[in-house]
Amino acid sequence: MEWLVATMIGLLIGCGIYLLLRSRSFPVVLGLLLLSYGVNLFVFAAGGLRVNQPPLIASGQPYADPLPQALVLTAIVIGFAMTAFVLMLALRALSELGSDRVDERQGDEES
């Protein structure tokens, strides 16, 4: 299972970074999304991968580490809000700048 999870995290982050380096804003947003998926999985795996164990400390019983689960929940909520924000920002940039290229030359600022 470690092998599978590690491969998935690597794949997600690799795809995310590839998309981040694209020149148009929508692939960049998708790249951020994939990157945050990969990172969330990574945080989840940081507590060790356990199957069929409760995230509760009972006496003597083995347990799954509950803290990364709580952390990843927070990270998902924050990542979701940030993605929504950056999507709106990309749309606004498209309408205000007339182009969705993220590397558009700044020029001598006219306004």
């Binding site: 960049v28 945050s36 945080v43 795996a45 940081a46 990364p68 952390l71 950056v86 920002l89």
Partner: peptide, 21 residues
């Protein structure tokens, strides 16, 4: 600013997770 800082936030989580691990 937003895109760069979001990438930074992802790296922050990675670093924090490594330290926790």
């Amino acid at each position: 600013y937003v895109v760069l800082n979001l990438v930074g936030s992802s790296l922050f989580l990675l670093g924090a997770a490594l330290i926790y691990a």
